[in-house]
Design a protein around this nucleic acid. Structure first.
Lengths: 179, 179
DNA sequence: AAATAAAACTTTCATACTGCAAGTCATTTC
DNA sequence: GAAATGACTTGCAGTATGAAAGTTTTATTT
């Protein structure tokens, strides 16, 4: 089995309007990019997926400094894409809880591979120990993330990586439980 | 082992200038996004990774319709990030061959998970058979892509998915080169 | 050798998107 | 009832994008 192929050439711009599709092309990579191919969407997904963030405020203060208008816009888009849901807090009517849908939590493998790639090739703030853990145990990591989501366990899976070269930083506390 | 944690709060904007880093934060997801978190970069990587495209022209006609100025800009950025290299064709001095570096080909797992996710949750042009193949055999898919890269085998691994629901579409003609 | 063509960019310019600051509005707390 | 909080909107300046046309360098054709 050499190539899963069927020679095609594509004037996709034309196909786009012809097919009535809102997408530039039906390539899955392209569709994904049209969903969250910008500088912010995946960060929000990360916040929800591994940090346990839920509210507008938390996203806003999440570290990279997203503007509130952009944040609001992205949250709407992600909802329209079915990746995120929003529901009002019962206790405090001001609060809105944003949460990943199953479609959203299913991005965990993508997120993990992204994490592994960047940790390997870029100067990131991820400690080596964490990476070894992740890389040798992908299945476990994903299942942990899934479990937290399923059980609505708000406990973060990973901390906000604050600075570069965290490896050299000395941590007062170990890699155990509870921050 | 519940959380790989160490409570940090982050005013990353500050950390950004303080550390002199060009990144908004050292989080690997963020770093990845700063590398190719736009609507085009990953498509180029896809073209090189699974379609065997090499030249400016090929990218340009790749389907989604990138503008030439944007294309040129992204190629430069990807080179600066060490994800892509450029070299002149020996036979034809006009041609420039763009190729993934090892850092670039290492994005194969990310690409694969993206493919799987989109095929599962979005209406894409990927035939079911292909997806089954990929999903049940991730390792094989990645190794195939790697092999082609290593051996400079120009044969595409996947075709350009032209339209949605390609499974049902019937193709009138196969297309060689030369529009 | 001159003319034509091809490939890879650049430039121009109108439009769209982003980012910052400030403001609105519905709760909630004091 | 006043101040505070959380979740957005609005206004506007600056940046990025897209379409089309132009430039440069290197083949190819005549």
């Amino acid at each position: 089995m050499k190539v899963l192929f069927d020679t095609l050439a594509g004037v996709t711009r034309k196909a786009r309007s012809a097919s009535g599709s809102r997408f530039r092309s039906g390539c899955p990579v392209n569709v994904s990019l049209e969903r969250f191919g910008d500088r912010w969407s995946l960060l929000l997904i990360r916040d929800m997926m591994v940090r346990g963030y839920r509210t507008f405020k938390e996203f806003q203060e999440s570290g990279e400094g997203i503007a509130t208008n952009i944040l609001a816009d992205r949250l709407v888009r992600l909802q329209k894409s079915g990746i995120v849901t929003a529901e009002q807090d019962e206790a405090d009517g001001r609060r809105v809880h944003y949460r990943l849908t199953e479609k959203g939590i299913d991005l965990a493998p993508v997120m993990l591979e992204l994490l592994i790639w960047a940790a390997r090739w870029e100067e990131t703030a991820v400690p080596c120990a964490v990476m070894t853990q992740m890389e040798t145990n992908r299945g476990w990591a994903i299942e942990e993330v899934r479990r937290r989501w399923r059980e609505r366990d708000p406990e973060p899976f990973l901390p906000p990586f604050k600075e570069k070269n965290a490896v050299r930083k000395r941590k007062a506390q170990s890699v155990g439980k509870r921050g």
